[in-house]
């Protein structure tokens, strides 16, 4: 077997081993295939800006992107798809494409473009995990990348405006969640008795929507109605990640939001500066008058709230 493998990814919170979809996919696949991977979160280092996550380091080679990393792990004989037939392998490709095309835009929008979620959840979280002065840059960089990706892939020429595509990407995403729910049915995994790479992909896309305490999300409320998908996520978390994160699921959202808002109000000293920088770079208007100040303490308190 090969040398020790190190995985660089965003750290965990909200009862998840990582808050980042791609990192989550790789972490889940590594658990499913039994690969021994040392996880080194990039939080609070300069790698938050410079590194492409997730990144697998093995000896001299560095592999990026979930599909490439999964292929690499397969070549190291960590194969969770070993028992799949060729037809099931084809299905895996098809459903992965479905996730990329239909769910990805709404996922990016929910976390990075939706003004309320961005100001109250995503920016505070990523800013609190980045060292000064990157705490100003990293969230903004991600938000701009997400916005331009949505506009370039789903926007309609010639104007490319976000309001025109919002309705479309959310209805696509809800349809995609429904289709996944039909496909999963009453089974625990998508194929057979053991989870495969498709389970890793679905988990990576769905779990953040399910677990994050989003102030506004039509997608989350839709997902909560699909019981088999939520218990699919809970099941994977309990079976494969319970030792890292003892996490009972928190359905009490309102109290959590209230706590979160109090916290963010307490720590918004540098709000004006962030607001100015932000408004220059983002054209979409922000609703909340207060901006949370990135502090590591905020993140730790926040993660303790849902538990």
């Amino acid at each position: 077997m090969a040398a020790a493998m190190e995985l660089r990814c965003w750290g965990g919170d909200w009862g998840l081993p990582s808050v980042h979809t791609e990192s989550l996919i790789v972490l889940a696949y590594a658990k499913f295939s039994g690969a021994k991977v040392t996880v080194s979160p990039i939080d609070w280092t300069w790698k938050t800006l410079t590194a492409t996550v997730p990144e697998l380091l093995c000896g001299d080679s560095a592999v990026q992107e979930p599909t490439q990393i999964i292929n690499f792990l397969r070549k190291q004989r960590f194969n969770a798809d070993y028992e799949l037939s060729a037809r099931q392998g084809a299905d895996t490709m098809a459903y992965t494409a479905l996730l990329e095309e239909k769910l990805r835009p709404a996922l990016l929008h929910t976390f990075w473009v939706d003004a309320e979620n961005y100001a109250n959840l995503t920016r505070p979280w990523f800013a609190s995990r980045s060292p000064f002065p990157l705490n100003f840059l990293v969230p903004m960089h991600h938000a701009n990348t997400a916005l331009s990706r949505i506009l370039l892939t789903k926007g309609e020429a010639p104007l490319h405006r976000i309001t025109e595509v919002e309705g479309k990407i959310y209805s696509d995403a809800k349809e995609c969640l429904n289709l996944l729910s039909y496909r999963l049915g009453t089974a625990t995994n998508f194929f057979g008795n053991t989870p495969t790479s498709l389970d890793a992909f679905v988990f990576g896309f769905v779990a953040p929507i399910y677990k994050a305490s989003l102030p506004s999300s039509p997608l989350q409320s839709h997902l909560r109605q699909l019981d088999n998908l939520t218990s699919f996520c809970d099941n994977i978390l309990a079976l494969y990640f319970s030792s890292d994160h003892p996490c009972p699921s928190p359905p009490v959202q309102e109290t959590m939001d209230a706590n979160l808002q109090k916290l963010t109000q307490l720590v918004n000293k540098e709000s004006n500066l962030i607001e100015k920088m932000d408004d220059n770079l983002r054209s979409s208007p922000q609703h909340k008058p207060h901006r949370p100040d990135p502090k590591p303490s905020l993140a730790s308190e926040k993660s303790s709230t849902p538990a």
């Binding site: 299905d91 490709m93 098809a94 459903y95 494409a97 479905l98 095309e101 289709l179 996944l180 496909r183």
Partner: peptide, 11 residues
């Protein structure tokens, strides 16, 4: 089957 059809169309 409809889920499968949509998935392959996206592929």
């Amino acid at each position: 089957q409809r889920a499968e059809m949509k998935a392959y169309m996206e592929l």
